[in-house]
């Protein structure tokens, strides 16, 4: 049982790191601000989500699990809002010039 949980942790965190890597490559390589913003959501949503899933077996109790999920939810909420705000600012700037 614990070996299976360890395997889940390793696989999920590695997958999460892959999405962080992909998001960072996108941030560095994509040509325009909106695409770069789009690349970042991969890291925040999927990457962090997979890392949280990987850490769940090690959270030590239901309270720890809830805290980890709450952290993921708050980051999702904040990053989605900030992405909207930045995209809105880019659009306003683009339409004025």
């Amino acid at each position: 049982m614990s070996a299976a949980l360890d395997l889940l942790t390793i696989v999920a965190i590695l997958a999460g790191l892959f999405f962080f890597l992909a998001g960072t490559v996108g941030l560095l390589r994509f040509p325009d601000p909106l695409s770069r913003l789009h690349a970042l959501t991969k890291a925040d949503n999927l990457g962090l989500g997979l890392i949280v899933v990987g850490l769940l077996p090690r959270a030590g109790g239901l309270l720890g699990v809830l805290k980890l999920v709450a952290v993921w939810f708050l980051v999702l909420l904040a990053s989605a809002t900030v992405a909207q705000l930045i995209a809105g600012a880019i659009r306003r700037k683009g339409s004025s010039t």
């Binding site: 709450a70 708050l74 909420l77 904040a78 989605a80 809002t81 909207q84 705000l85 809105g88």
Partner: peptide, 15 residues
């Protein structure tokens, strides 16, 4: 108010 920011300002404070 800006829609996205207003949404965050309504969801976040209770937490």
């Amino acid at each position: 108010p800006e829609a996205a920011l207003a949404f965050l300002a309504q969801v976040l404070p209770p937490l």
